[in-house]
């Protein structure tokens, strides 16, 4: 997605409670993702235990998602109210979201994302051939 369409998409996405972030793969990913998610959930008055669960999700994403970022940068969005939050990992390669879920599988424990989140789903990118991983969490 380039040019005017990308601009319009970003504009549309920036309105409301959505926070959208794109960072270069590497050491920036973890500190930025964790802090942004923490702030968004704290502002929505989430209890500390569930905020910490969300950070476990962030840790899993930071460890594995950069491998599937389509342009060497990891894009994500987060929005929350006092009951629910949605974290999206955007602009992944076509099979990236599927591979990412597979990578977060642990022996005995199972899938880290699915254990913590209320739902984990995969959606196609609105523009282009990429995929998105959509993680829904509740505050209780």
């Amino acid at each position: 997605m380039r040019g005017r369409a990308a601009e319009e998409h970003r504009h549309e996405q920036a309105i409301g409670n959505l926070t959208r972030v794109r960072v270069a793969n590497g050491p920036l990913v973890e500190p930025v993702l964790r802090r942004v998610v923490s702030m968004v959930l704290a502002r929505a008055d989430w209890p500390v235990d569930r905020l910490d669960d969300a950070l476990l999700v962030c840790d899993a994403l930071c460890a594995h998602a950069p491998a599937y970022a389509s342009d060497g940068r990891l894009a994500f969005s987060v929005q929350a109210d006092e009951h629910e939050a949605e974290l999206r990992v955007l602009e992944l390669t076509a099979d990236g979201a599927t591979e990412l879920v597979r990578d977060t599988m642990l022996p005995v424990v199972g899938n880290v994302l699915e254990r913590i989140a209320d739902s984990v789903s995969i959606e196609p990118e609105r523009h282009g051939e990429g995929s998105q991983l959509v993680i829904a969490l509740s505050s209780s």
Binding site: R10, Q13, A14, I15, G16, N17, L18, T19, R20, V21, R22, V23, A24, G26, P27, L28, E30, P31, V32, L33, R34, R35, V36, S38, M39, V40, R43, R73
Partner: peptide
């Protein structure tokens, strides 16, 4: 020049704290 970090969010006073904390993460990484 490809940016290292981009944030897009609604222009609300309460969102400035998110920007500040994201910059904190940026500063930590660098």
């Amino acid at each position: 020049m490809t940016p290292d970090m981009e944030l897009a969010l609604a222009a609300r006073a309460e969102n400035i704290a998110i920007v500040r904390h994201a910059l904190g993460g940026f500063g930590e990484a660098f």
